[in-house]
Write a protein that binds this DNA or RNA. Structure first.
Lengths: 246, 246
DNA sequence: ATCACTTAGTGTACTTTTTACAATTTATAA
DNA sequence: TTATAAATTGTAAAAAGTACACTAAGTGAT
């Protein structure tokens, strides 16, 4: 790997989703902006995690690298969903007289290739070498830098669409999880309430969800059985569907 | 519009699908390569339709423009499905000593943002100002320039996935079409045979498919009823589904 | 006018899935 | 022992999926 970037104007940006406190959260990074003239700190901002693409990387390589540098995790769910080029981004940032604290000009990244990632929050070390990252519940995201609000919007759309047709909900949960937790993940992402019995009946037909001989510990009520996702079974039993809406 | 390109290294590439002779076809463009030294024509190649993104365009704007320049059509189905950056593309093309006939260096476009488009073949004028385009059945596509084979592959995957969940099949047909034609489109795209009665039962439940008081003309058998897609009805009746595979 | 030919159009019985809905079980904590 | 909290489970009715074969309505040839 050369570390020479492919192009100054292209970056990957990653919408990192986590699930905690019964909410869908996004991992955002603080960006410190200084005045070009005085070098004084003007204010801080929140951005997605992103970076350039190196010369000898595919776009996916770059995204996995970005994700690893931010979270220390690999083998996580990551999916490219859309590329963005805001013709106004250039202008909007040019009008300002700010620099990012490391001296980079914030206008540089023009085309951004959006990925979303699902990670199990508990594994993650939020502090990393490149800036301070923090989990922000979707409902509390304010105005982000650049066009990152739009990217989050579209990532959420892509996630909603994807989760309806492929079993990816458990990617937001620890390896072993209860059916109620899984149901909550679906409810939070889809924004609807689901009937407990029907959810279990439906998901129960999916062979890839394997019940363990293990139960929740330390809860003040009947402990729930734990389950795991088996990719193996999934690959073997997956069949394509043919359903169009309405 | 300035016509100043955003960036030399980024392009949009469009996989234009058409349906004819009961086959899925792709509109491809001949590229003439000349030797850099002698300017002699070395050979011709086939590529997708693509172009750079202008400074004041969104990526989608650029794709619609590219499609319009190639086909003379607007208001067609167009969808961004994936961005590509082949780290090897640069090298592969650099090793050769060719130029495209207009003098451009073929290595220039590095990141390509892929779209696919569905058009009703009968409306299209294939001759256009920028090169000769021709319809090639999917089964007969040989080796394309750059990584365009991969882009076509992925476009097809995206199309297959999309058509399972959204009503876009008729985009490949004239405004008025028969149910048999529609069924053939689904069969060709999905690569499976469908039962005529079951297909009609299923699609018949979709209110957006409106039967007309009009029949096929000039066929040597019982003429079929013609149908139209009503986007209006679709928008109104569309409801989200929650189905995961297996 | 009849007939041969070709594709359009339709129904039924069976299985599976969806949907709406509430009582019982099993653990902890007081 | 009891109160509490969440887990777990079933059923009946409606809708959708599946497998399967005959009749209808045109054209073109005789």
């Amino acid at each position: 790997m050369t570390n020479r970037i492919l192009n100054d104007y292209i970056s990957v940006d990653c919408v990192i989703f986590g699930y905690n406190d019964n909410e869908l959260q996004v991992l955002l990074v603080e960006r410190t902006l200084t005045k070009e003239s005085t070098k004084e700190i003007e204010f801080t901002d929140l951005t997605l995690t992103g970076n350039h693409i190196y010369e000898d990387e595919t776009i996916e390589d770059a995204a996995y690298r970005v994700l690893y540098d931010r979270t220390g995790l690999d083998n996580v769910y990551l999916e490219q969903f859309k590329a963005f080029a805001h013709p106004n981004r250039l202008k909007k940032e040019k009008d300002r007289k700010w620099l990012i604290h490391d001296g980079r000009d914030p206008e540089q990244r023009i085309v951004s290739i959006g990925f979303f990632s699902l990670i199990s929050t508990r594994n993650i070390i939020v502090e990393s070498k490149c800036g301070i990252a923090k989990w922000v519940p979707l409902s509390e995201i304010g105005e982000l830098a650049f066009d990152h609000n739009q990217i989050v919007e579209e990532a959420l759309k892509a996630l909603r669409s994807k989760i309806k047709h492929e079993p990816i909900g458990f990617e937001l949960l620890p390896e072993k999880f209860t059916l109620t937790e899984l149901q909550h993940v679906y409810e939070v992402i889809l924004g609807t309430e689901l009937d407990k019995r029907n959810f279990r009946k439906k998901i129960g037909r999916m062979k890839y969800l394997v019940p363990l001989d293990e139960k929740q510990k330390g809860v003040a009520h009947k402990p729930a059985r734990l389950y795991m996702f088996s990719r193996d079974v999934y690959e073997k039993t997956r069949k394509e569907m043919f359903d169009f809406t309405v």
